[in-house]
Amino acid sequence: MQKIKTALLSYGMSGKVFHAPFLNFHPGFELIGSWERSKKLLHQDFPALKSYASLAEVLQDDIDLVVVNTPVATHYEYAKQVLEAGKHAIVEKAFTTTVAQAKELTAIAKDKNVKLSVFQNRRWDSDFKTVQQIISDKVLGKIMEAEIHFDRYNPLLSPKLHKETVSDGSGILKDLGPHIIDQALCLFGLPNSVFADIRITREHSLVDDYIDLLLYYANFRVRLKAGFFVREANPAYVIHGEKGSFLKPRGDVQEDELKLGYQPNLETWGTEPIEKQGLLHTEINGEIIREIVPTLQGNYYDFFDGVYHSIVNNSPEPVTAQEGVQVMQIIEAALQSNAQKRVIDL
């Protein structure tokens, strides 16, 4: 099996939790090392890997794929250098800070004939995969409205300074927002227009920490919400159609288990607890049903497997750069809408 030599651009939480376990587990990748700045944590988990002192050192090495998992404000600068060096790239969300930057990276990747994918791992959450299946099966009839929430209760400021310092890449719109925006686009495509309410709600916060986005489609609406003052969570997914409804709590276990040091597998990984199953209440073949729906298995491994095949077999990336551009279009429209207090056409 062809091995793709891979390097990370940081080994903080995202490198340790979301990337290294899957790159180490997938037989098609060879994790070579990570750029580390102050904290040297890589060798605690991988003593044999390289700890790079700079991005230039990474790019000078025999590396095929680079994971740009640094703060959002750095994505464009670092990804551009990676692509121009002829390396394939995975870029964390938010893809960039502007649509123009996202389009430029897309063009560079095409010009250099390298693969560029955005790390939208939440497409492979168990809860989202189940919602996707419900909509695909058309058991709700024509969709009338939908809500996707990424709610938390955490009124304290993050200890990660880059998350709380005002910059083009900080704030919940570019942190949790890309997850639910990407999921909406996966389910329903690009909307016609956007309205947004973006606020600061935590004491002493300098960056946005509450978003309420309304996506306008021709015959239905989709609401996207995220905030830090939801102690009793709403259903993460509320889908209403002409014939019925599906309500699903957020239940994917992958992030929590990865933080505990569990290692991924292909058999039981991403299996939700039964109590997190969704409720389907609809009409099928003239019969009203109200039942609990088993949750599909989630696995972020599938994203990395998609990246592997895109490089080795020249298949499409699991999340394309163009899809990253579309998420940035929604984010820019949301910022414009909030500033002008009006609906923004795309």
Rank of each mutant, 00 (worst) to 15 (best):
97 T>Y: 05
207 V>K: 10
87 K>H: 03
107 A>T: 15
218 A>P: 09
99 V>H: 04
260 L>K: 13
44 Q>C: 08
255 E>N: 04
312 V>P: 13
85 A>C: 07
80 K>M: 11
204 H>Y: 15
257 E>F: 11
145 E>V: 08
277 Q>M: 11
95 F>E: 04
31 L>Q: 06
226 A>T: 08
153 Y>H: 15
101 Q>C: 04
47 P>H: 14
263 Q>P: 00
221 R>G: 07
167 S>K: 11
320 T>I: 01
108 I>Q: 02
116 L>S: 00
213 L>I: 14
180 I>M: 09
164 E>A: 07
119 F>L: 02
79 A>W: 06
185 L>F: 11
336 Q>E: 14
67 V>I: 10
307 V>R: 01
250 R>W: 08
283 E>Y: 03
95 F>I: 06
327 V>G: 08
332 E>W: 03
125 D>P: 03
172 I>K: 14
188 F>Q: 04
33 G>I: 05
204 H>P: 07
78 Y>V: 11
87 K>L: 02
311 I>N: 07
154 N>V: 10
89 A>L: 06
55 L>P: 01
237 Y>S: 11
80 K>S: 12
137 D>P: 01
246 F>P: 03
1 M>S: 12
326 Q>R: 12
259 K>I: 06
147 E>M: 13
66 V>C: 00
142 K>R: 13
152 R>W: 11
303 F>A: 00
197 D>V: 08
270 G>C: 03
178 P>R: 08
160 K>H: 13
298 G>I: 04
132 Q>I: 04
131 V>G: 02
284 I>G: 04
296 L>F: 10
55 L>D: 00
235 P>L: 09
293 V>D: 07
15 G>M: 12
52 Y>H: 01
240 H>V: 10
134 I>F: 03
36 E>T: 02
216 Y>G: 06
153 Y>N: 14
29 F>V: 00
339 A>F: 05
169 G>T: 02
8 L>G: 10
180 I>L: 06
210 Y>T: 08
6 T>D: 08
307 V>G: 02
138 K>Q: 15
97 T>E: 07
124 W>V: 02
22 F>L: 12
282 T>Q: 07
272 E>C: 08
262 Y>W: 09
188 F>Y: 02
244 G>H: 05
29 F>Y: 15
207 V>L: 08
77 E>I: 01
275 E>V: 08
314 N>F: 14
140 L>H: 07
286 G>H: 04
18 F>D: 06
192 N>D: 15
268 T>F: 09
124 W>G: 02
20 A>E: 10
